[in-house]
Nucleic acid binder design. Structure first.
Lengths: 119, 119
DNA sequence: TTCGTATATATGAATATATGAATGTAGTAA
DNA sequence: TTACTACATTCATATATTCATATATACGAA
């Protein structure tokens, strides 16, 4: 079944672009709406070049889209549901150690925080 | 927001366990139901030690559960919806290059194949 | 043009991950 | 016990990622 292997490989590649703490954070922040690099730097507490590098990785897979306006470059999710899909994945953490571990609680809280889409 | 960072890190860690072609395949195969190592070796065409290593990775995050019966060790998904969730992620491929590229077509086909849960 | 701000890219050292070969262990049958 | 089958682990090597620093580019204002 070479077809399944090809698709599995592609999917794995996309997932590995996503599977980095900084990139998860960026995706969730962008789930709240378009932001420019400075905002993302501030929100994540990372160095600007680091943020740019992660954005480049996300861009390379077209997970995000960029738009230049004036001095800033504004990023948004190519598909807004990506953030929601990721949030659903949080359930993996929530039930991982079954009974309300600290981590599971944090995950629930984060899911609540992030799933509110601010206007 | 240290809470978000902790959760993002955890989620990223789980995603990186998943984000390997062999592990995606294994998860999807297990989405069809419990299988022992030999079956997985045959289905994926990988060497047995390789399959065992990937299973160990998935086990370490409790994404799969193992059960010994006679000679074989049977694996199953800790949460069946994990396979479905992953399949939803395939939409990322399907829409990535917009108009029906070969890859997008393959992804659609794979999603059909895998989303049928055999009895 | 020059200056300042915002963002991107290049480099290199540290670290992490993957792969394949060899070996180890657990159970079954005789 | 021995031999066989099924599976797991270890280790060495190869390869890839990551982060910080330095440098480059793009644009607006003056």
């Amino acid at each position: 079944m070479p077809e399944r292997n090809i698709v599995a490989k592609e999917l794995a590649e996309i997932l590995s672009v996503i599977s980095h703490p900084a990139r998860v954070r960026i995706i969730e922040e962008l789930g709240q709406g378009e932001k420019d690099v400075s905002e993302l730097v501030e929100l994540t507490g990372l160095h600007q070049p680091t943020v740019s590098q992660h954005l480049a990785a996300l861009r390379s897979r077209r997970l995000v889209h960029d738009r230049r306006e004036g001095r800033g470059v504004y990023y948004s999710l190519s598909q807004l549901w990506l953030a929601d899909w990721l949030l659903d994945g949080l359930k993996l953490i929530e039930s991982e150690d079954l009974n309300g571990s600290e981590l599971a609680k944090a995950a629930k809280k984060a899911r609540r925080l992030w799933s509110v889409r601010k206007k």
